[in-house]
Write a protein that binds this DNA or RNA. Structure first.
Length: 800
RNA sequence: GCCAGCAUGGCGGAACUGGUAGACGCGCUAGACUCAAAAUCUGGUGGACUUACGUCCGUGUCGGUUCGACUCCGACUGCUGGUACCA
């Protein structure tokens, strides 16, 4: 009989899913293993090959762990709030609830068609009120602990559509929907104080098992920098300017100051500024510049000098000018800098444009030409008591001086900003806050959660940038939870990151109505042993969810500090043309097509064989064929089985494969694991008859990759037990070592001969064997032998 | 600009801590089977020279360290990702 995935795949899927064989068992005695993949956004187009790649890695690990005797939690769910569904719903005039339910249904069917071993009893859906009740509950806790606050900020606003836009919808400064220019509109929005956790988030990275680059990316995102805060008095006023600098040693070279256009000094000292008009004009320009312009047009350093105000350099005691310039941002540091044109290139550019003094304080370069930024070899000059020191000595010396004079202190600054936590849209979790005229902002009582999204006909954004919820009187008008007087509900909803910041906790206890998850179950299942997802989520999603988890731990809701033990990230699958897959390029590969034409096992196998798991790789149709041929070959092997005991030679091949495949899977080297299985199948098919024992080992090793065909073949061998919980093969060390080894003989590093020798041939014998070799003789050619290097088990190199 | 990563046959990719470059797959090619084709099986397949045995060259470019470099170091080029005037 020929291999026909169309009949055997549905058969085994039915067996698995009808009997719930992948259900994780709470509090089981077996050691637990929690394998987590990033849950999908259920889009209308169904699964992408990228989803398959993202899930297949841990699918292999989960199936392998079950065979190794673990109680495995391998869950899946849906991150279903968000813009695409909402936009589609508006366009198609279907309620987002309906759209979401349909999409989830499609995804679930597709996941099962590929044979993923998820525990479908634990599916979570972030848009389910029973789920988002707890998302709201966590928000309330953050609010109670002062970690959620409201503040004014500028948002992208389209005056024509009267709608707030996301960054994505306002790229290049034009509205995505009507193409009119986007302006910045000031609005009161919610923030989460993630900066309060900056240090903890940095600390927690120490124990995370991951690629160095993943760690580096998070470190750079948090962006801790150590330096000093220095206070500059503003001459003839009571005002002062605080700056943050990483280079306090260059204090004596600060010849001017620059403040952000939004800096409060401009209001406070307004009376003293003589060129108000010019300043106002510049501030207005900066306000209208989109973030795009302000950050992309790097070349021209614009700015206006404040007439009538000067600062005093606390080192030199000299008066120095103050400028307003938009290259300084209010959002980082203190919104003001001391400019050291001699040793900072941006300041140097600015000084050149505006004809300002450039003073050299670190010797080594030519500061009239360019800023000299070498901190290793430079020596301080023109700096009073710092003269003669190197940069490393001068930094603490300056800080000591500033602290003594009460002009500044050591300071740490983070690049990471607080998390803007709001959207003015319908399809998101309502923020559970009530605005009361008397009590201010009050959290909804816990027993009144969830604050559900009202079922409405119209969910288009309301006018003037307000959420559609603002137009629904029934929703808005409520009573104050504290004083009982009439009050209004918050109408903003949460961003998409909210539901995904804690979903992995819900999987441990998905139906709990009393808590986000039972503490004992959390204790049993957490931490996540292995978390795989996209490289693009390594900064935002991973950091946000770590923040929520650390907070939940601090308030005693979860037992562990850091949620994840190990994190990996898969590479992108490109189109067959090497470009990113996209509808517009017409190079999208639909994974379900591959299932249809070649079978799910072929898809699973190929997607891991395609290349290094962490690297991006183009899709190849002919590569798929290769994966299918391999399965055909395995199928045919079953027709040549024998009960004879395998030869030592065969046992060696089998056990080396067991050893290699095991190691490769644990190291995410799925492509080489598969190539080793192919080699084993090739070797077995070269035999007259295939020992059954060797074949069964092959089936078990292959089972996590290609579960359907292996279950079928296993059944045909007469085995009653499913492979799902069959013992994973263990290598027998006696078959891993060879008695004889091939050693290379090289002359001056070039391979000239190979010899077969016993494993522990002594050095002297090897040397003489090498020197006597006919082939090497030719290259030694009577020249004097300088040295003979013997690397045990590898080679002998003769140097002449 | 800065940070990180990558660069290996016709193609996707292997090569552990420096030690036989090109595993495995695709493609191509010759042969077997077939009336024929498909499928399958067997052999070959980095390049140049050579009747052959072989020899030389070869891991983006240039240089260095080493008995020995795809692997380490320096400079450069190109590609990918992240970030954005971060003080």
């Amino acid at each position: 009989m020929r291999y026909n995935p169309k009949t055997i795949e549905p058969k085994w899927q039915k067996t698995w899913y009808d009997n719930n064989v992948f259900a994780a068992v709470d509090f089981d005695d077996k050691p637990k293993y929690y394998a987590l993949v990033e849950f999908p956004y259920p889009s209308g187009t169904g699964m992408h090959v990228g989803h398959i790649r993202a899930y297949t890695s841990l699918e292999i690990v989960a199936r392998k762990r079950r065979m190794e005797g673990h109680n495995v939690l391998f869950p899946i769910g849906f991150d279903a709030f968000g813009l695409p569904t909402e936009n589609y719903a508006m366009q198609a005039k279907i309620h987002p609830r309906t759209v979401t339910d349909q999409n989830i249904e499609t995804f679930t069917k597709q996941l099962k068609d590929v044979g993923f071993s998820f525990d479908f009893d634990r599916v979570v859906d972030t848009t389910d009120p029973d789920y988002y009740k707890w998302t709201q509950w966590i928000f309330l806790k953050l609010f109670e602990h002062g970690l959620a606050y409201r503040n004014k900020t500028d948002v992208n606003y389209c005056p024509s559509c009267k709608v707030v836009l996301s960054n994505e919808e306002s790229q290049g400064g034009a509205c995505d929907r009507c193409d009119s220019p986007v302006v910045q509109k000031e609005k009161d929005v919610w923030f989460l104080k993630i900066t309060a956790y900056a240090e903890k988030l940095l600390d927690g990275l120490k124990d995370l098992e991951t690629l160095p680059r993943i760690k580096t990316e998070q470190e750079n995102w948090i962006g801790r920098s150590v330096g000093a805060e220095i206070t500059f008095a503003v001459a003839d006023t009571d005002e002062s300017l605080r700056v943050f600098t990483t280079r306090p040693d260059t204090l004596f070279g600060a010849t001017f100051m620059v403040i952000a256009p939004e800096h409060p000094l401009l209001e406070k000292a307004r009376g003293k500024i003589r060129n108000k008009d010019a300043i106002d004009r510049y501030r207005e320009q900066a306000r209208h510049k989109s973030e795009f312009e302000r950050t992309q047009l790097v070349k021209d350093k614009t700015g206006v000098r404040l007439d009538g105000l000067e600062a005093i350099n606390p080192g030199t005691k000299k008066r120095i000018p103050i400028f307003v310039a938009d290259y300084v941002m209010m959002g980082y540091g203190t919104g003001a800098i001391m400019a050291v044109p001699g040793h900072d290139q941006r300041d140097h550019d600015f000084a050149k444009t505006h004809n300002l003094d450039i003073v050299e304080v670190i010797q080594g370069g030519d500061v009239t030409e360019a800023a000299y930024t070498d901190t290793e070899t430079g020596i301080l000059v023109n700096s009073d008591f710092l003269n003669g020191m190197d940069v490393k000595e001068a930094i603490p010396a300056t800080i000591d001086f500033l602290e003594k004079e009460k002009l500044g202190s050591r300071a740490i600054n983070y690049k990471m900003k607080d998390w803007a936590f709001n959207r003015q849209r319908y399809w998101g979790e309502p923020i559970p806050i009530v605005h009361c005229d008397d009590c201010g902002m009050v959290g909804v009582n816990e027993e009144d959660l969830p604050v559900t999204l009202p079922a409405v006909e119209r969910f288009e954004p309301a006018a003037d940038g307000e959420s559609p919820l603002a137009a629904i009187d029934d929703f808005v008008n409520t009573t104050c939870p504290r004083c009982g007087k009439p009050a209004k509900r918050e109408t903003d909803t949460m961003p998409q990151w909210a539901g995904s910041s804690w979903y992995f906790l819900r999987y441990t206890d998905p139906k709990n109505a009393k808590a986000l998850a039972d503490y004992k179950k959390l204790t049993y299942w957490m931490n996540v042993d292995w978390y795989n997802g996209g490289m693009e989520h390594v900064t935002r999603h991973v950091i946000y969810s770590r923040f929520w988890h650390l907070f939940l731990h601090d308030i005693g809701v979860t037992p562990m500090g850091e949620p994840y033990k190990k994190r990996t990230a898969q590479g992108l699958i490109l189109g067959p043309d090497g470009d990113k897959m996209s509808k517009s390029k017409g190079n999208v590969v639909n994974p379900m097509d591959i299932v249809e034409r070649f079978g799910a096992d072929t898809l699973r196998l190929y997607i891991l064989f395609i290349g290094d798991y962490e690297q991006s790789t183009p899709w190849s149709e002919s590569g798929v064929k290769g994966a299918r041929r391999f399965l055909d070959k395995v199928w045919r092997l079953a027709d040549h089985l024998t009960d004879d005991t395998p030869s030592t030679e065969v046992l060696k091949i089998v056990h080396k494969t067991i050893n290699g495949v095991n190691a490769d899977i644990e190291a995410s080297k799925f492509n080489t694991a598969i190539s080793k299985l192919m080699t084993l199948a090739n070797d077995l098919s070269a035999l007259e008859v295939v020992p059954k024992d060797a074949f069964e080992n092959l089936l078990r090793l292959l089972h996590p990759f290609a579960p359907h065909i292996t279950e079928e073949l296993n059944e045909r061998l007469g085995n009653r037990e499913s492979l799902t919980f069959a013992a994973y093969p263990k290598p027998d060390p006696t078959y891993l070592v060879d008695d004889t080894i091939t050693m290379v003989i090289s002359v001056n590093g070039k391979v000239r001969d190979k010899i077969e020798v016993a494993k522990d041939t002594p050095r002297e014998t090897l040397e003489s064997l090498a020197l006597d070799s006919e082939k090497t003789q030719k290259f030694i050619d009577g020249k004097p032998i300088k040295k003979v290097i013997v690397v045990p088990g590898k080679l002998i190199n003769i140097v002449v």
